[in-house]
Amino acid sequence: MEPIMIKNAIALLLLAAVGAIFVSLLAGYMPDEQLNLTARYYAERTAQDIGTANIVTAIVVTYRGLDTLGEVTVLFISAAIVGLVLAQGRLPTNVPGSPQQPRVPVGELLSTGSRLLTPLILLLGIYVFVNGHLTPGGGFQGGAIIASGMLLLLLADPLKHFSHRLIDVIESISGLLFVGIGVLGLLYAGGFLDNRLLPIGTLGELFSAGVIPLIYSLIGLKVGSEFSSMLASLSETEEA
């Protein structure tokens, strides 16, 4: 038998065993009929305690805000590392000054479309994160939308340079503010990342839910800038 076949066979064997574990998980799974303790608490208390219409947002930004801070940090260091690494070395063949390969020109449709769509996309992104506490969506989604706008720009003009400096500043300042708000919560409210620094306001209004809209906006900015930074870094490896 070929080694590769043995390897595949072993892989199948192992995965069959893992599959068996999954099957027993699946077999033992009974969907809940009632909300469990935690979920029930959120369902009952979110409106009055946090003041967000979107309960998921309350969980993401406040109840489990530390997680969110962590994931923002994940993105932050991923972006930092990718940026650092990709800036460090270039493919050895692409020595500066070597003749650039002719690029396939970008289509008219794309370049025009991008000019038209990008502002709209950015606007949508901002809308999504600003309204994160009210409607489905939030900082991450909004940030991703913003980044997609950036991607569109890059597709339209692969040689386009973003100001890394600007991205960094946005990223850092939004991160700092996020932590800062968290610490303020610790000092002036119930605890780290407590949203009740600001009044909760009325459920369903834009300016409600304490600092959640603020935080989610910061997250949106941060995520957007981080994604953009990664995209930019990755695309620069291509062009140079």
């Binding site: 959120y42 406040t62 109840y63 489990r64 530390l66 997680d67 119930g190 605890g191 407590d194």
Partner: peptide
């Protein structure tokens, strides 16, 4: 015990 989000566990971290 340090609570975050001004909420007692297990509802907040």
């Amino acid at each position: 015990e340090i609570y975050t989000a001004g909420t007692a566990p297990p509802f907040a971290i």
